[in-house]
Protein backbone atom coordinates (compact mmCIF):
# COMPACT_ATOMS: atom_id res chain seq x y z
CA UNK A 1 0.00 0.00 0.00
CA UNK A 2 1.38 3.40 -0.89
CA UNK A 3 1.02 6.99 0.18
CA UNK A 4 0.95 9.38 -2.76
CA UNK A 5 1.12 13.15 -2.70
CA UNK A 6 1.00 15.69 -5.52
CA UNK A 7 1.34 19.44 -5.13
CA UNK A 8 0.98 21.93 -7.98
CA UNK A 9 0.87 25.68 -8.41
CA UNK A 10 -1.37 27.17 -11.09
CA UNK A 11 1.74 28.33 -12.95
CA UNK A 12 3.07 24.76 -13.25
CA UNK A 13 0.74 23.87 -16.13
CA UNK A 14 -0.86 25.49 -19.17
CA UNK A 15 -4.65 25.78 -19.01
CA UNK A 16 -6.03 23.41 -21.65
CA UNK A 17 -8.57 20.81 -20.61
CA UNK A 18 -10.14 19.43 -23.77
CA UNK A 19 -12.66 17.29 -21.88
CA UNK A 20 -14.59 20.53 -21.58
CA UNK A 21 -15.59 20.13 -25.24
CA UNK A 22 -17.28 16.88 -24.23
CA UNK A 23 -19.02 18.55 -21.29
CA UNK A 24 -20.29 21.29 -23.61
CA UNK A 25 -21.61 18.78 -26.14
CA UNK A 26 -23.36 16.89 -23.32
CA UNK A 27 -24.85 20.14 -22.03
CA UNK A 28 -26.24 21.07 -25.45
CA UNK A 29 -27.80 17.63 -25.73
CA UNK A 30 -29.37 17.98 -22.30
CA UNK A 31 -30.96 21.28 -23.31
CA UNK A 32 -32.19 19.84 -26.62
CA UNK A 33 -33.69 16.73 -25.04
CA UNK A 34 -35.21 18.51 -22.04
CA UNK A 35 -36.32 21.87 -23.41
CA UNK A 36 -36.10 21.60 -27.21
CA UNK A 37 -33.83 23.02 -29.89
CA UNK A 38 -34.73 26.65 -29.24
CA UNK A 39 -33.31 26.36 -25.73
CA UNK A 40 -29.89 25.45 -27.17
CA UNK A 41 -29.86 28.63 -29.24
CA UNK A 42 -31.27 30.73 -26.40
CA UNK A 43 -28.59 29.51 -24.01
CA UNK A 44 -25.75 30.05 -26.51
CA UNK A 45 -27.09 33.52 -27.22
CA UNK A 46 -27.19 34.37 -23.51
CA UNK A 47 -23.70 32.93 -23.00
CA UNK A 48 -22.22 34.79 -25.97
CA UNK A 49 -23.73 38.11 -24.92
CA UNK A 50 -22.31 37.73 -21.42
CA UNK A 51 -18.89 36.18 -22.07
CA UNK A 52 -18.00 37.97 -25.30
CA UNK A 53 -19.10 41.37 -24.10
CA UNK A 54 -15.50 42.75 -24.29
CA UNK A 55 -15.01 41.16 -27.72
CA UNK A 56 -18.33 42.57 -28.93
CA UNK A 57 -17.20 46.00 -27.78
CA UNK A 58 -13.89 45.61 -29.67
CA UNK A 59 -15.76 44.41 -32.73
CA UNK A 60 -18.00 47.48 -32.63
CA UNK A 61 -14.97 49.75 -32.34
CA UNK A 62 -12.47 48.06 -34.65
CA UNK A 63 -14.54 45.89 -36.95
CA UNK A 64 -13.45 42.58 -38.47
CA UNK A 65 -9.80 42.59 -37.26
CA UNK A 66 -11.09 42.13 -33.70
CA UNK A 67 -12.84 38.91 -34.70
CA UNK A 68 -9.91 37.66 -36.71
CA UNK A 69 -7.60 38.21 -33.75
CA UNK A 70 -9.95 36.32 -31.41
CA UNK A 71 -10.42 33.31 -33.67
CA UNK A 72 -6.74 33.14 -34.63
CA UNK A 73 -5.88 33.02 -30.94
CA UNK A 74 -8.26 30.22 -29.94
CA UNK A 75 -7.47 28.06 -32.96
CA UNK A 76 -3.76 28.45 -32.30
CA UNK A 77 -4.25 27.60 -28.62
CA UNK A 78 -6.07 24.38 -29.42
CA UNK A 79 -4.00 23.27 -32.41
CA UNK A 80 -6.73 23.87 -34.99
CA UNK A 81 -6.27 24.78 -38.62
CA UNK A 82 -7.99 27.87 -39.91
CA UNK A 83 -7.68 30.25 -42.84
CA UNK A 84 -9.06 33.77 -42.99
CA UNK A 85 -10.31 35.26 -46.23
CA UNK A 86 -10.63 39.00 -45.80
CA UNK A 87 -11.89 42.02 -47.63
CA UNK A 88 -13.02 45.41 -46.37
CA UNK A 89 -16.56 44.28 -45.80
CA UNK A 90 -16.24 40.58 -45.22
CA UNK A 91 -14.31 38.02 -43.19
CA UNK A 92 -14.60 34.34 -43.97
CA UNK A 93 -13.36 31.85 -41.43
CA UNK A 94 -12.45 28.57 -43.08
CA UNK A 95 -11.87 25.94 -40.41
CA UNK A 96 -10.19 22.88 -41.88
CA UNK A 97 -9.32 21.18 -38.62
CA UNK A 98 -11.78 21.65 -35.79
CA UNK A 99 -10.02 20.69 -32.54
CA UNK A 100 -13.28 20.45 -30.58
CA UNK A 101 -14.96 17.95 -32.89
CA UNK A 102 -11.76 16.02 -33.53
CA UNK A 103 -11.27 15.63 -29.78
CA UNK A 104 -14.85 14.42 -29.32
CA UNK A 105 -14.41 11.86 -32.13
CA UNK A 106 -11.13 10.71 -30.59
CA UNK A 107 -12.73 10.34 -27.15
CA UNK A 108 -15.80 8.58 -28.58
CA UNK A 109 -18.14 11.19 -27.08
CA UNK A 110 -21.50 11.54 -28.83
CA UNK A 111 -21.62 14.90 -30.57
CA UNK A 112 -24.75 16.95 -30.13
CA UNK A 113 -26.60 17.32 -33.44
CA UNK A 114 -26.72 21.04 -32.62
CA UNK A 115 -22.99 21.40 -31.98
CA UNK A 116 -22.72 23.64 -35.07
CA UNK A 117 -24.73 26.23 -33.11
CA UNK A 118 -21.55 26.90 -31.10
CA UNK A 119 -20.39 28.53 -34.34
CA UNK A 120 -23.65 29.80 -35.87
CA UNK A 121 -25.43 31.25 -32.84
CA UNK A 122 -22.25 32.66 -31.34
CA UNK A 123 -21.41 34.34 -34.67
CA UNK A 124 -24.88 35.87 -34.92
CA UNK A 125 -24.73 37.06 -31.32
CA UNK A 126 -21.39 38.77 -31.89
CA UNK A 127 -23.17 40.80 -34.56
CA UNK A 128 -26.02 41.89 -32.27
CA UNK A 129 -26.45 45.68 -32.36
CA UNK A 130 -23.79 46.13 -35.06
CA UNK A 131 -23.81 46.80 -38.79
CA UNK A 132 -22.58 43.26 -39.37
CA UNK A 133 -24.18 39.88 -39.97
CA UNK A 134 -22.90 36.35 -39.69
CA UNK A 135 -23.88 33.14 -41.40
CA UNK A 136 -22.61 29.60 -41.28
CA UNK A 137 -22.05 28.63 -44.91
CA UNK A 138 -21.11 24.99 -44.37
CA UNK A 139 -20.59 22.48 -41.58
CA UNK A 140 -19.26 18.94 -41.79
CA UNK A 141 -20.78 17.02 -38.86
CA UNK A 142 -18.13 14.33 -39.14
CA UNK A 143 -15.06 16.56 -38.73
CA UNK A 144 -16.51 19.90 -37.66
CA UNK A 145 -14.82 21.60 -40.62
CA UNK A 146 -16.80 24.72 -41.43
CA UNK A 147 -16.97 27.97 -43.31
CA UNK A 148 -18.43 31.02 -41.59
CA UNK A 149 -18.92 34.48 -42.97
CA UNK A 150 -19.11 37.87 -41.25
CA UNK A 151 -20.23 40.61 -43.59
CA UNK A 152 -21.55 44.13 -43.53
CA UNK A 153 -25.32 44.36 -43.63
CA UNK A 154 -26.56 45.63 -46.99
CA UNK A 155 -27.54 49.31 -46.75
Amino acid sequence: MSLLRMERRASDNPYLHKDFHAALSTALDYLRLTYGETAVRDFLHQFARAWYQPLREKFRQHGLPALREHYARIFSLEGGEVTFLESTNELQIVCKRNPAVLYLRERGTPISPLFHETVATVGQTLCDETDWKSELLSWDPETGAYRQRFFRKPA
Binding site: Y15, L16, H17, K18, D19, F20, H21, A23, L24, A27, L31, Y35, A39, D42, F43, Q46, F47, A50, W51, Y71, I74, F75, L77, E78, G80, C95, N98, P99, A100, T118, V119, V122, G144
Partner: peptide, 22 residues
Protein backbone atom coordinates in the same frame (compact mmCIF):
# COMPACT_ATOMS: atom_id res chain seq x y z
CA UNK B 1 -15.82 27.56 -32.23
CA UNK B 2 -16.02 27.90 -28.49
CA UNK B 3 -12.61 27.10 -27.05
CA UNK B 4 -12.32 24.67 -24.15
CA UNK B 5 -10.67 27.59 -22.33
CA UNK B 6 -14.05 29.34 -22.50
CA UNK B 7 -16.06 26.46 -21.08
CA UNK B 8 -16.22 27.68 -17.49
CA UNK B 9 -18.00 30.91 -18.46
CA UNK B 10 -20.33 28.78 -20.61
CA UNK B 11 -20.95 26.42 -17.70
CA UNK B 12 -21.71 29.36 -15.42
CA UNK B 13 -24.13 30.87 -17.92
CA UNK B 14 -25.78 27.48 -18.42
CA UNK B 15 -26.49 27.22 -14.69
CA UNK B 16 -27.93 30.72 -14.75
CA UNK B 17 -30.02 29.90 -17.81
CA UNK B 18 -31.41 26.71 -16.28
CA UNK B 19 -32.14 28.48 -13.01
CA UNK B 20 -34.09 31.17 -14.88
CA UNK B 21 -36.14 28.43 -16.58
CA UNK B 22 -36.84 26.10 -13.68
Amino acid sequence: MISCTEFIPAYNELFRYLDQRG
